[in-house]
Write a protein that binds this DNA or RNA. Sequence first.
DNA 1: GATTTTGATGGAAACGGTTCCACTTTAGCC
DNA 2: GGCTAAAGTGGAACCGTTTCCATCAAAATC
Lengths: 335, 335
Amino acid sequence: MATIRDVAKRAGVGIGTVSRVIASSGPVSADAASRVRRAIEELRFRPSHAARVLPKGQSQTIGVFVPLVHGAFYTPILHAIYTALREHGLHMVVDFGQTLETERQDALAGAEFLTDRGCDGLLIMATALKSADIEHIAQLQPKFVLLNRSVPHFRANCFSPDHQAAGAAAARALCAAGHRRIAVIEGPARSSDNRLRIRGFLAALEECGIDPDGVPREHGDFSPESGHAAAEALFARGRTFTALFCANDEMAIGALAAARHAGIAVPQDLSMMGYDGIDLAALTAPPLTTVLIPWRQIATHALQRLLNLCYGMNLPVASDVPAQVLNRESVARIA
Amino acid sequence: MATIRDVAKRAGVGIGTVSRVIASSGPVSADAASRVRRAIEELRFRPSHAARVLPKGQSQTIGVFVPLVHGAFYTPILHAIYTALREHGLHMVVDFGQTLETERQDALAGAEFLTDRGCDGLLIMATALKSADIEHIAQLQPKFVLLNRSVPHFRANCFSPDHQAAGAAAARALCAAGHRRIAVIEGPARSSDNRLRIRGFLAALEECGIDPDGVPREHGDFSPESGHAAAEALFARGRTFTALFCANDEMAIGALAAARHAGIAVPQDLSMMGYDGIDLAALTAPPLTTVLIPWRQIATHALQRLLNLCYGMNLPVASDVPAQVLNRESVARIA
DNA sequence: GATTTTGATGGAAACGGTTCCACTTTAGCC
DNA sequence: GGCTAAAGTGGAACCGTTTCCATCAAAATC
């Protein structure tokens, strides 16, 4: 591989001049510049990223951690981050979870990996992080933002939907449609975002005069398959409910399939509500009524805050984009 | 940030000793080693990746290019690559497309980016690459493999399902179920994998005595939304067909929704077949009959070939894992 | 015409690791 | 106890950039 010295020699100039041409900084005569450019081309010279980062101390790269690579939930979020980054001429390195025991360990390991890689800042999407973990990350790399997790001490770095309010909105919509006997498929007990939305959901149910303790509940892991299994478990207990709230759309898709398989018509026999508002939820049979969480916007704001932090930019940052129920066809009014 | 010299000073040893402790290579006395380890901890020392790569010339990192971050198709493939890499203690840097005009330009830019990042090897998933482009990549970074694209000159580096055979299998399955009037929703004309599977499909139809020119065809872009639109366009032309083949499952999901919306029962009024075998296809209504492409295995083999290339490993590499039709409930037998 | 300013330029030093060689100490052997 | 081999150690040189400073020529100023 050709180095900057090779280029300098070939162009008959010093390395300083070559560097100036590449960075187009500082004065260079037109003649020298063209000779350098020719030499670069002839030698197929490409500056080494590592050698460049070393003296500069900046890599123009943001590290992103995302808990898993599977399904359709994370990709639009990644896409939003990626395109926003590209608009600023910045790059992204992604790390994924699901290699260690817990999401928490994955996220911590991810933060370390991305920091070691010389990322200028970190965007971490992880719900299972404890306060102490976040302190740890802050020491590793003070320039970071959290997505889908909110802790008091780092409020300004946290960007999360208000899951409790969104969960409550789901419950109110179901009550308003006349449902009194409602079942729930939750996500993993570990994930704080799941806990919050279920808490909000049950609290709002209570406000509507429904006893939260009487609500049949099953756990899934947010995957469609787990939603399918959880719905079957629920049906096996005897169907005493007229509506089913799923803690995310992917589990709802699984639950929909389970209902179809069990001969339960949605929404005639059973209403179903999802959560997140993934694109696919518009194409289920029937189209899924869901709580639309503005993930793309939230992610974009988190990123913009991070860029302000890292590069002294002045991008607008909003931290509360409200969720709302998106009425489609999977919830029926009952008497 | 503490450097290796700070650690050496604090531990009262030379930098060579510190380096040996970190790499656990070469002889170090137990006493010195423990002092070094303590100093590392106290100073929170983390070796700089850039500084490490520079003299070594290896980054233990594989670059992966994937055309887009959206939907559910690419994530299982990325996941397979990612976990395989982690098993070998290696890392991954991903670059995505959809930022430039065409997928082809994206892939080329991605290859350059990943090379510049010091990746030891490249795994590129792109269907729109021309032979000359691949030559170009080979010059950039001779250690590369291609996924979902096959060119004669680099046969050993190419890992692609046999789309033509798989397309033919789909057609034969439909014919075997008694269908004679069949419509098709294709992917983009640009993508070679789409062209191959459609070519195989139509050729097999002809073998069954069906005139390929009489087959109604619409184009989509592989997204569910485009499948929906294409199906609507097809229905609008008048429904002269009893079966519909979609060039991927995601478009089939969209087409399924369009059929439901138009009051067309699947499979009673219309049979539908997808392609790829994504997980979600098992959960549609009705469950989707599809051509199962063993993407995870193909990706894994491509990666193993790449690792052999990059690190002199001796991993098994197979280049032909056959596709097969996965019968579910969206295709009906007709008289 | 002397003096200052500006434009171009080359290259040393620095970034933070790894590698390797020279050197000292200790152990092993007869 | 003398000799050799092995273990342990320190640090110079190097990787390929950027940054900065010294130098010099040409242009601008008085």
